[in-house]
Amino acid sequence: MKELSLNILDIVQNSIRAKAKQINIAIEESELRNSMVIVINDDGTGMSPEMLSNVTDPYTTSRTKRKVGLGLPFLKQHAEQAGGTVTIDSLEGKGTRVHASFVLNHFDRQPLGDISGVIKLLIMANPAIEFIYEHSTDKGEYRIDTKEIKEVLEVKSLTDNDLMKDIQNMILENLENIGVLD
């Protein structure tokens, strides 16, 4: 995967399969601390301690269609090659939290990529799940909450393509304001 936003899309797929109703995606970039942190938090089924201890092993997967799972191993590889780490906390019945850190200016840190496109796609493709997306930099922070958007716009779902394009543009404008470039 060429962009960290695609890793996010992939990890969120785990949350969706874990029947999450609420998924939070938080990205923190700081030039002052030279760090980038991605946190994905869900209220899905969670994992047993045994599953959790093996989850970054490619030959561990909850899937039955095939015997390998590369989502978390890829994220771990990408974090570690950029001077960071991945930590995963999970409680059965409560949910899972994936925390990935990167050295911001590391030569091997992949670009974040099309994060607004990934957020748009996740919201549109999963109408039954609420998303919170937070992005912060040294200049400020931006946050959207699908529950709040639906309340303000008085719509039941966020599946209209024109509406979602406007929302994506709104995200882009705000990310630009806080200096998110890549």
Partner: peptide, 25 residues
Amino acid sequence: KITSLSDLKKKRDEIKSGLEIREMA
């Protein structure tokens, strides 16, 4: 430019009358 939810709401309200907004099937 749309930079906030209220901008978004304003635009939605403007076009709502003329267009049917597609909701979840």
